[in-house]
Amino acid sequence: MDTVATFLAMGGYAGFVWPSFALTFVVVIGLAIASRRALRKAERQLALLEQSRPARRARPGKAA
């Protein structure tokens, strides 16, 4: 228990060390989630569009 408290205290600099890591964590995770979401959204839109146009997908084969 004592070692955990020592670790968390960061030699008296807890108020500077932990916010630094917390901000880094928030930015890293936030950018990853936002980027993932944008990717999923684009993929969903593309799937929808391709579903709604089955004729176009078949056309190159027929034309050939």
């Binding site: 990853a32 980027s35 993932r36 944008a38 990717l39 959204k41 684009a42 993929e43 839109q45 593309l46 569009l49 391709e50 146009r53």
Partner: peptide
């Protein structure tokens, strides 16, 4: 991830 999203987004726009 971001480049993929952008490329797919452009394809969606074109379609």
């Amino acid at each position: 991830w971001r480049m993929k999203a952008e490329l797919i987004g452009r394809r969606v726009r074109a379609l």
